[in-house]
């Protein structure tokens, strides 16, 4: 009797969960974008989601929820029901929340639906800067300590990771680091001469570089980039960078851990198909992003590897508030 009840209950729950997944979505899905309207994350998400909507046969209402380096949005979704009706549309930042003391939740509380694309970092300089490549910049810093102004976007942002990478490879840099609240304003300041050098994502600077409004110093990668041929990779100047590269920010769609598996796979299927849409592929290419379109275990291991590498890089550069060890983030290769 007991067995029967358990069997019936589990059959029922199986059935309902299958039924839920079958009907899904029965109402609008809400997509919370971690960053502001008009930013890279926003553009990527708004470009891919309509294609996913077509596959899903539902509506995804996208909203920007900014603040706390994206933590406000992440916590918001983490506090909602895991019913598959709230998607988190974010970038790489949450993987550093724990070590940067910005929150106690990160993507380990979520299931990746799709890691859409990855960006490449590039060092750009104001046109009037007295050097034309990475080697020239290092020589200038050595000759003029405390004079070069490098833009940053706060601890844990892309510029801070790139700077940490350079310091790990080349040793301490005596420069002035000027904080901006995003790479857009910082690149504007670069063109106006308020800062001399900016580590930025390729996509945000590619148009200005092509127009000659700023000059590229080095691509932060092991090979030159197909969208910007002629700009040397940073490993051409110093082999030491190879240990940490390729590295770059990424964009992904997530749902809360505990969401019905059938719903997760339905969403994964939808986004996987959407990411192959030609318009989206072209958009990513024109912005200099490398398309990834991975999910499941592949995405999970990408996230783990990214978190390990970057956390320990920042830890070794003395930029973290808490050691990655405290959160069980293993040193890469261990």
């Amino acid at each position: 009797m007991k067995k029967f009840v358990i069997g019936a209950v589990s059959a029922l729950s199986l059935m309902t969960s299958a039924a839920i997944a079958q009907d899904y979505p029965t109402k609008e899905i809400q997509g919370i974008i971690q960053w502001g309207a008009g930013g890279s994350t926003d553009t990527v998400m708004r470009a891919v989601t309509p294609h996913a909507e077509d596959v899903l046969g539902g509506t995804v209402v996208m909203q920007n929820m900014t603040g706390g380096v994206g933590a406000i949005a992440l916590n918001h979704v983490a506090n909602e029901d895991a019913d598959g009706y709230k998607l988190l549309m974010g970038a790489e930042n949450p993987l550093l929340y724990k070590v940067m003391g910005l929150g106690d939740k990160d993507y380990s509380d979520f299931v990746p639906i799709n890691i859409l694309a990855r960006g490449t970092a590039i060092l750009v300089a104001n046109n009037d800067a007295p050097f034309d490549d990475y080697a020239g910049m290092m020589a200038y810093i050595a000759e003029n300590p405390g004079e070069l102004r490098i833009g940053s976007t706060g601890p844990g942002g892309l510029p801070s990771v790139v700077t940490a990478m350079i310091e790990t490879v080349e040793g301490e840099l005596d420069v002035i680091s000027i904080p901006y609240d995003g790479d857009g304003p910082a690149l504007t300041a670069l063109q106006g001469g308020a800062i001399d050098v900016m580590p930025a994502v390729l996509g945000a600077s590619i148009e200005a570089i092509k127009a000659g409004n700023m000059k590229p110093l080095a691509i932060m990668d092991t090979t030159a980039n197909e969208y910007l041929p002629g700009v040397p990779a940073v490993t051409d100047f110093n082999e030491g960078f190879a240990t940490y590269l390729p590295w770059g920010p990424f964009f992904g769609v997530f749902v809360k851990q505990g969401t019905d598996e059938a719903i997760v796979s339905k969403l994964q299927g939808a986004y996987a198909e959407a990411a192959t849409n030609q318009d989206f592929v072209d958009l990513m290419a024109s912005r200099g992003f490398t398309l990834m379109n991975i999910s499941g275990d592949e995405a999970q291991s990408f996230l783990t590897k990214w978190q390990q590498g970057t956390s320990w890089l920042l830890q070794d550069a003395g930029l973290t508030k808490a050691s990655p060890e405290e959160f069980g983030i293993a040193r890469p290769g261990e």
């Binding site: 553009t43 708004r46 470009a47 590619i206 148009e207 200005a208 092509k210 127009a211 000659g212 409004n213 318009d279 072209d282 958009l283 024109s286 912005r287």
Partner: peptide, 11 residues
Amino acid sequence: LFIHGLNPGPM
């Protein structure tokens, strides 16, 4: 403009 396939920028 990006989403519609244009590249807003100095060019």
